[in-house]
Design a protein around this nucleic acid. Structure first.
Length: 542
RNA sequence: GCCCUCGUAGCUCAGUGGAUAGAGCAUCGGUCUCCUAAACCGUGUGCGCAGGUUCGACUCCUGCCGGGGGCACCA
């Protein structure tokens, strides 16, 4: 944000002057602790800094006195838009700006438009691999999976907005005992029998078994069937993966053997009790892990390492989004990557808490084997993709989320998603109405933005001014829900503006009308950007 | 026992060291001859407990209490 940089630079230079003035010979101050940020309370100005509080100890002066001196220097430096600099509280510097700084924000938004406003180059073209969902190919996605789909996809969109290349990855565990059980269950169902006790008991298998031709390999066919189903559900949620990696194919191309050889050569593998172990404890894991069982079968861990090794060969940053029940997995994978010599900080596991579903006031346990499921596709069919996605993105991934299907269905009209979409629809309807009335927006350069002084108008612009920051914070904190919060706030200030500030009414003067039309356009751009990242459609009408 | 995570208003949740902790829902009550009332306005004794670090702690650290999830030659 231009104005922030400007304030920051002036502040730093004032600090420098102050230190020479005092004759301080202490070391350089820790600038990272000095913040220039919007105060929570508007009456404390448009921007505020804790510089004097941070510097007080180092310069051995009371913070308020330092603040006074800084304020005096800053008042003289003629920073654009700054009307006054005040000292408040324990020693905060509060900058009060003329609304013109917000009028510049409006121009900034409109000129950059949806493609470029709030776009960053933080990633600088680096590639980040994000693996999420990766459900077993033994059935449909359940409603728990869709939390990862919504979260992971929006996180990817955030990365993209911040200048990263993104590879959305889905790992297909199509090997192992579970697949045999799956095939056995499928065959049993096709004969009208019950699946084996530890097999898959979900009703979907009855339907799938009917579809299965008699002359096919049930395993092969079943894997394809599940994949097709999962992919279709993800598409319904508007989530598209760039790369599906099959464990089978990975093994078939020798990745597992190569990985084992490589690890052996690195001297981190040993044999014990007939099994082959990786020295993960050497790299921070609690205990060593088995790569090849004593019966000669590799564990899931070995192909997993091969897969991650491959990911690192393609991408600079590798992220796995996992459910809380997989958190024990993180240590061993990090250790395995470290033993390869990869920078462990480039491997990141995001552990999300699981979603709990409630129906009829009872918790629905999501188990594919037991067959008690709420399917992701059911949820999407019942409430729509927009409601589904936004619901998941309303709260932090660190918290267990309880989704009450009945509530979400019967009260879907009260879902915040409509609040956001209605705001967008209002903006579009204004355009249609204006066209009906033959009112045209004059070029932005000719509009007089200085008439935008209403508190509601300024609230919107303030909100828009912080969108670039919010996007960076949401990306950096891997927390797309922060953008949800911002979007709800933007919609809120917009709805209030709409209520208080008429645009097309006959008693609105032409210059105010023009400025407001541009304000609405800027708001629409901001809203469209954030809705796109959240994966929610921005409708023309509601 | 060890590890991860959460505990904020009646309920569901925001708040990544700043000043007087916020929203939605619920309750009760208002607002359309006026750009869509799916909206707006009013209505509130809350940070699990105890220490610590700090000029300043919901936020960081330690311990305790409580909820959830893990601790395989399962994936």
């Amino acid at each position: 944000m231009k104005i922030r940089n400007c304030l920051q630079n002036e502040l730093y230079s004032a600090l420098g002057d102050l230190r020479t003035d005092i004759g301080s010979n202490s070391g350089d101050p820790d600038l990272s602790k000095i913040a220039v940020e919007p105060p929570r309370d508007r009456s404390h100005g448009d921007w505020s800094s804790n510089a004097a509080l941070v510097m007080a100890k180092m310069l051995q002066q009371p913070p308020r006195r330092l603040a006074e001196k800084l304020a005096a220097l800053l008042r003289d430096s003629g920073i654009p838009h700054v009307e006054s600099v005040e000292v408040a509280g324990p020693g905060f510097l509060n900058f009060h700006l003329s609304p013109t700084w917000l009028h510049e924000v409006l121009c900034d938004v409109v000129e950059n438009d949806t493609d470029n406003y709030a776009r960053h180059n933080k990633g600088n073209g680096r590639t980040v691999s994000v693996e999420f969902v990766s459900a077993n190919p033994t059935g449909p996605l359940h409603a728990g999976h869709s939390r990862w789909a919504a979260y992971g996809d929006s996180l990817c969109r955030l990365f993209k907005r911040c200048g990263y290349n993104v590879v959305r990855e889905f790992y297909v565990n199509d090997r192992g005992r579970q697949i045999e059980l799956y095939a056995e269950s499928l065959v049993a169902r096709s004969r009208g029998e019950n699946p084996p006790e530890d097999g898959y008991h979900g009703e979907y298998l009855i339907d799938w078994a009917k579809e299965m031709p008699a002359d096919v390999d049930p395993e092969e066919w079943g894997l394809q069937r599940a994949h097709k189903n999962q992919k279709a559900t993800l598409e319904k949620m508007n989530v598209a993966f760039d790369l599906w990696t099959s464990e089978r194919e990975l093994v078939a191309r020798g990745a597992m053997d190569k990985t084992l050889t490589r690890l052996r050569n690195l001297g981190v593998v040993y044999e014990s009790e007939g099994a082959t172990w990786l020295q993960t404890s050497k790299y921070g894991d609690d205990i060593d892990r088995v790569l090849v069982r004593s019966n000669g079968d590799p564990t899931y861990f070995l192909p997993d390492i091969a897969y991650h090794h491959e990911k690192f060969s393609r991408c600079g940053i590798v992220i796995d989004i996992l459910g809380a029940d997989h958190h024990g997995y993180v240590g061993r994978m990090r250790a395995a990557m470290a033993s390869f010599g990869y920078d462990p900080s480039c491997y990141e596991a995001i552990i999300g808490q699981n979603a709990i579903l409630r129906r009829n006031n009872k918790e629905v346990r999501l188990s594919k084997r037991a067959g008690t499921m709420v399917l992701a596709s059911q949820l999407i069919d019942e409430v729509g993709a927009d409601v589904t996605r936004l619901t998941y993105l309303l709260q932090s991934i660190d918290t267990t989320q309880t989704i009450d299907i009945d509530l979400i269905t019967t009260q879907s009209a009260e879902n915040p998603v409509y609040y956001l979409q209605y705001a967008h629809a209002r903006m579009r309807s204004l355009e249609r109405k204006a066209a009906d009335l033959n009112i045209e927006r004059i070029p932005l350069a000719e509009a007089d933005l200085s008439v935008l002084t209403h508190e509601r108008e300024l609230d919107i612009l303030r909100s828009l001014a912080f969108l670039p920051d919010v996007i960076l914070t949401a990306m950096g904190g891997r927390s797309p829900h922060r953008l949800t919060t911002w979007t709800c706030e933007l919609a809120s200030v917009f709805h209030r503006f709409w209520h208080d500030c008429p645009i097309l009414h006959s008693d609105t003067t032409e210059d105010v009308r023009q400025a407001r039309l541009w304000l609405v356009e800027a708001t629409r751009i901001g809203l469209a950007i954030s809705l796109d990242i959240l994966g929610v459609t921005a409708p023309e009408r509601l």
